[in-house]
Write a protein that binds this DNA or RNA. Structure first.
Lengths: 139, 139
DNA sequence: TTTACTGCAAATCTTTTGCATCAAC
DNA sequence: GTTGATGCAAAAGATTTGCAGTAAA
């Protein structure tokens, strides 16, 4: 199995410049346990490097998306969250009581995928699926 | 089976006023085949009644949501869509190629719901679920 | 040296809100 | 006549963009 090269190497391999801003954005994304939003990335960086701009964060996220290095998830919060594509695709259970985000394993939805293909001729992209509801504590 | 009374009657029964703006908003929602967004409702009304304001649309949608008369769906378009609750809950397949919205029947996801309950102690609210992907033509 | 990348400011887009007026009841 | 609903204008929050200067290669 090939060791996944890190995002910075992939950027420079493709001819994109490795600026300090990009490196900080990459590490913020990579170090985040949960999925991180643009302004969380920004806040984390501004703390150490006060004159980065949030538009740089958005432009970098746009680039990483285009290159398939990060994955975007819309949890219906009115903002979008990102996480590294190499960490694999998750499905998300978002508790509307306490806000907990539970990651779901990929195979669980395989049968749903098959059903949709078979009965609706629809090829779902389940990589960014988010399911809202309530966890045990909150229900 | 009780005949579902229309949204206007329910509003006035609950002591809310039936203004012409509200009636036009209600009929826009009710006549829309697909799920309709706030600015689509607004555009439709302004055509005939040029001095309605979009904030009235938002305030009415907020009210209808609170009363359970309309249902909100976030298809990840950066805006929210609405449809009458009496038309039942749908699950949505959104084709990212051609934009088609395919409605899915409720029972289809029953087994998913059961699995999430059993294995994750999570009670999903599947009423507003949207699944992105590609239809036969576009895949 | 070249030109991709950045910071800044301003624009966009959706949704929300304060406030004085207006109209449904 | 009351008070809830509206229009207007402005604010808010996320994201995008134009532009001139800067720095990675």
């Amino acid at each position: 199995m090939e060791q996944p090269r890190d995002m910075a190497s992939k950027l420079s391999e493709q001819g994109y410049r490795l600026t300090p801003q990009r490196l900080m954005i990459l590490s913020a994304i990579d170090n985040s346990d949960n999925h991180i939003s643009a302004d969380e990335i920004y806040a984390q960086i501004v703390a150490k490097y006060p004159n980065v701009n949030i538009s740089t964060v958005y432009r970098t996220l746009e680039l990483l998306k285009r290159l398939g290095l990060v994955t975007e998830t819309d949890l219906g919060e009115g903002r979008v969250r990102y996480h590294p594509a190499v960490k694999g695709h998750h499905h998300h259970l978002l508790c509307q009581g306490c806000g907990a985000i539970i990651d779901l394993d990929e195979p669980l939805l395989a049968s749903l995928k098959n059903t949709l293909l078979r009965e609706y001729n629809f090829l779902p992209d389940l990589r960014h699926l988010a399911i809202l509801g309530r966890c045990l504590k909150c229900s």
